[in-house]
């Protein structure tokens, strides 16, 4: 009994020591992560403008009410959703096709994969500039190529629908390789025996794809979709460079609007409220994904 007490005391001491060692790290984490988040949440409940020397006033959540009544906020929200709802399925399908092709070993496949990753590695600002040149109405190579097929030059960045399409094209160009590489890693992790068993059972290639590959890739798909949702909520630099949110506000996303509210209009309260709304939406989506699709299946 006395020995057991001794062991428990020792364990308690060790735990306390571990807590003590972890404390500085925890403090830093709270200060660096939770601190700014709480400050943002705090600001979102205040009428707080830096445009004029006026002290902040608690406004009982009116920033949120104003946002829900603001057509510009809803426009930015739906633009972000458009990029998500149209962009992610296209990128997922393309990414899967590319991953399946790259999964077949061929000479120089590693170089192809490395080259293929280049758009992901390019700084978003550079990508924005690149596409601004590619889509230029007069000097852009895309309109030149279309012209070879007798298609009249398109004002890609001047018409609302085309401008949104341009953002989607650029986003797909930049992020499809990312989707492909994540799925490729998922494919590589599928044990060879599973395919061999499927082959022994006499499955055709399409049956193997639908019944073996895709179900086993589901967690990777969920991960990549979740990451893309988070990235799209954060999309700022390429849109700002390519269209500046225009024409009008046709391509203004939530991140662009947050920037305008915060750093052009210096309305700290409103920009914090938009940021909090984004954070809440992302957290809910992540919770759903992690809690359902990505949840590891329990052994039966």
């Amino acid at each position: 009994m006395a020995n057991l007490d001794k062991v428990l005391t020792l364990e308690r001491r060790e735990r306390r020591f571990a807590q003590l060692v972890a404390l500085p790290g925890m403090v830093v984490l709270v200060l660096l992560v939770a601190g700014p988040l709480l400050y943002m949440l705090f600001n979102s409940f205040f009428a707080n403008t830096l445009a004029a020397p006026i002290p902040p006033r608690f406004n009982w959540g009116r920033n949120y009410l104003n946002l829900f009544d603001d057509s510009r906020f809803w426009n930015a929200f739906f633009n972000t959703m458009k990029i998500m709802v149209i962009g992610i399925p296209i990128q997922s399908v393309l990414g899967l096709i590319i991953a399946l092709l790259l999964n077949k070993k061929f000479y120089g496949s590693k170089i192809v994969i490395a080259l293929f990753m280049m758009p992901v590695m390019i700084t978003p600002v550079v990508a924005g500039f690149e596409w601004k040149i590619i889509l230029d109405n007069h000097f852009g190579p895309l309109n030149y190529i279309l012209g070879l097929f007798g298609i009249q030059p398109l004002a890609w960045l001047s018409k609302p629908t085309l401008a949104m399409a341009s953002v989607l094209i650029m986003d797909t160009w930049q992020w499809t390789p990312f989707v492909a590489v994540v799925l490729l890693a998922g494919l590589a992790a599928i044990p060879r025996q599973v395919y061999e068993a499927s082959s022994v059972d006499g499955s055709s290639s399409s049956e193997t794809l639908w019944r073996v590959t895709l179900p086993l890739l589901k967690p990777m798909f969920a991960l990549v979709v979740l990451l893309r949702i988070i990235f799209i909520f954060k999309i700022f630099d390429p849109v700002q460079i390519l269209t500046g949110g225009g024409p009008g506000i046709a391509t203004e996303t939530l991140s662009v609007l947050t920037y305008i509210m915060g750093f052009k209009n210096f309305d700290v309260g409103m920009s914090s409220a938009i940021a909090v709304i984004q954070l809440v939406i992302i957290t809910i989506i992540a919770k759903v994904f992690i809690g359902t699709i990505m949840k590891p299946k329990e052994a039966k």
Binding site: A51, A52, R72, N75, S158, K159, P160, G246, P247, G248, I249, A250, I260, K264, N265
Partner: peptide, 20 residues
């Protein structure tokens, strides 16, 4: 607040002209 006033006006003018 001129910058903010003019930005709101600019958004209105460009949104209407582009048909948004």
């Amino acid at each position: 607040g001129s910058a903010e006033y003019l930005d709101a006006l600019d958004v209105a003018v460009t949104s209407a002209l582009s048909g948004t």
